[in-house]
Nucleic acid binder design. Structure first.
Lengths: 355, 355
DNA sequence: ATTAGGTATGTAAGCGCTTGCAGCAGGAGT
DNA sequence: ACTCCTGCTGCAAGCGCTTACATACCTAAT
């Protein structure tokens, strides 16, 4: 640690120049075979570890990408990170992980830090409280490689990998409609976050297309965590019984869980009193006492695609900006009170690995 | 990006030396007030971001720690990472995350990479397939700051933050014994991983203390994921009915989930045919159709303590090596077939946030 | 007036590595 | 004999920043 071995030491040991050692270690062509052997040997013997810091300084390249996620507690983002890790590792990059805690200020800090660390590119999923896109705009103006994932920012000149939130939200809403529900409420996310706006749009589209009334007080803002859904649902429960909705489209699964909690707490039931659907297929969705109908997002895939795009962007400045959509899948379970074919076996609710 | 601004540019702009700029930006005392103002202003205007790479090179300090986790899919490690992130952020460090995928080779690679990145210290939870401790020993010999977490390596001269696996395993086993079970099997983890060995020891201790027979074929090796538990349980189910155990202590929750899967698949039930207990209180444990009795490990706390210890170690070479134990808690649910007081309400199984 | 001491700035060197170019062999080509 | 090319090696400079030391100026003390 204190006495880290350097090129110089190897050079002195063998009485050659630093350059020869550098070349030998970097597999350059113009080094005599026997010299290279000797260098490799001594490097090994001395326990040489190349100093990436020095290398990065001169090469102006760190082979590191920064990842900013808004939260990391449950299943979605860890799974995305797994996907990112995989690609990044295969391409000889590393990943610095930062965590905005759904907070714009911490996100801004994270960006600054990562810039200072001279990461080669950035992967961002915007925080819930993001109010403006200045920080992103600055990055793009400096043509810093940047790819958004899951929560996108459009029309700003950055690539994004996500799902088609609007279409998927419409699909899940239509599923409710097709099964006879007419009084449908939406617990919607923040409008500045793409998933909030797009899922709301998808919901509205489905409702309009089927000529269903969208009451103002059935559009309840919900934060993206359990608590948000809980509070939003309680707002609906405060309505006189006659003007309550019969079904709920939640902006995501955690929000739906929170809503379910509020429903049970009020002594009511899912799906008998309220049908409810979520979005993202959280690991817990299928395990709920009334398993949640939801939209499955291929998180691993999102991470993989996003990091692949970013690395292309880094390595080829000609690489074009684009929006990548990974397909989702409607997963019908009991919470919507529609006949589902899925998941008959007690335990298959849980297991997927079985050979 | 291409034209990043440097101290030199600010210096030229103001017609002062690089040093003055450096001093102003680093809040050193000996800079004229008006000069400092001007520097700060231009730095702001030009969008200066200090180059941590250059700084690290000369200071021989990166303010970065490396974290190696064996997996990141479910709840435990993400939660640990949250704890780490928190401390690290508060202390102005950053975190490079690496993922060994339970594989010794990838872990070794990760260590090398992190050394090359000159991280100031390492936080490691050993991979399941780790067969020897050479890589760790080398780090310690170089007195590279190193703290293990959750899965520890003892007697090697490194600090560790974890739970008392032996005592906790004994506790959960005794819980079964106290409720009348005598024929108890253990799905044990790899011996080279502390949690494997210590939980096995705890299990054996409890059994011996109560003069219960420990049949060889009731000690079944299980990997630490669902699949391992599934295979191990099937081995028990292959025994003639009369020599099957009545209760199962699984090395961790995922292993228990796998075992439950095997049990259901065999048309049997939990806890009526097999009582089962796990370890770690995975986010899914309480949601199983027969909620899992388990040992709750305070993951966030483990991450927090481990990173605090590491940072102390980095900043004060006198800081002593120690083993930190965070307390666990037995969580009794239905899977062990013992009367549980907990969790009466349908949904409280799930929610903790409620105000 | 002379000196010591403080304040504000600049100069030099170097962290460990790379790129660019120069140098020196020796073998081939005319 | 001469140049020319190829193969291997070394030298110099510099990435952006810091520490250590030197310099200039100014004020207070003798």
């Amino acid at each position: 640690m204190s006495s880290r071995v350097t090129l110089k030491q190897i050079a002195r040991e063998l009485d050659v120049s630093v350059m020869t050692v550098s070349r030998a270690l970097n597999n350059r062509s113009n080094v005599d075979h026997s010299t290279r052997q000797k260098v490799l040997e001594t490097a090994q013997r001395l326990g040489y570890r190349p100093n990436h810091i020095a290398r990065s300084l001169v090469m102006n390249k760190t082979n590191t990408i920064g990842v900013i996620v808004p939260e990391i507690t449950h299943s979605f983002f860890p799974e995305v990170i797994r996907g990112i890790e995989q690609t990044v590792h295969q391409n000889d990059y590393q990943l610095i992980l930062m965590h905005s805690m759904e907070n714009q200020e911490r996100e801004a800090q994270a960006i600054t830090t990562l810039e200072s660390k001279r990461v080669d590119g950035l992967l961002i999923s915007t925080a819930e409280t993001v109010e403006n896109y200045e920080n992103y705009q600055k990055l793009i103006d400096e043509s810093y490689p940047l790819v958004f994932f899951d929560r996108c920012v459009f029309d700003i000149g950055a690539s994004c990998v996500g799902v088609n939130d609007r279409t998927s939200a419409r699909e899940v809403t239509e599923h409710l409609i097709e099964h006879g529900y007419k009084k449908i409420a939406h617990l919607h996310g923040p409008e500045k976050v793409s998933i909030g706006k797009n899922r709301l749009d998808g919901f509205l589209e489905a409702m309009q297309q089927h000529d269903l009334e969208v009451r103002d007080d059935w559009l309840v803002p919900s934060a993206l965590q359990e608590k948000g859904g809980y509070q939003a649902m309680n707002q609906l429960l405060d309505l006189p019984e006659s003007s309550r909705p019969r079904a709920i489209v939640a902006v995501n699964d955690p929000s739906a869980f929170g809503a379910m909690h509020a429903i049970y707490e009020a002594g009511l039931d899912v799906p008998d009193d309220f049908a409810i659907v979520g979005f993202s297929d959280d690991i817990r969705a299928k395990l709920m006492s009334s398993p949640l109908t939801t939209i499955r997002q291929p998180a691993y895939e999102v991470g993989k695609k996003a990091s692949e795009k970013l690395i292309s962007l880094i390595e080829d400045p000609e690489e074009e900006i684009e929006q990548l959509i990974v397909p989702t899948e409607l997963v019908v379970r009991e919470s919507c009170g529609c006949p589902a074919e899925e998941e008959t076996h007690k335990m298959s609710r849980f297991m997927e690995f079985a050979e």
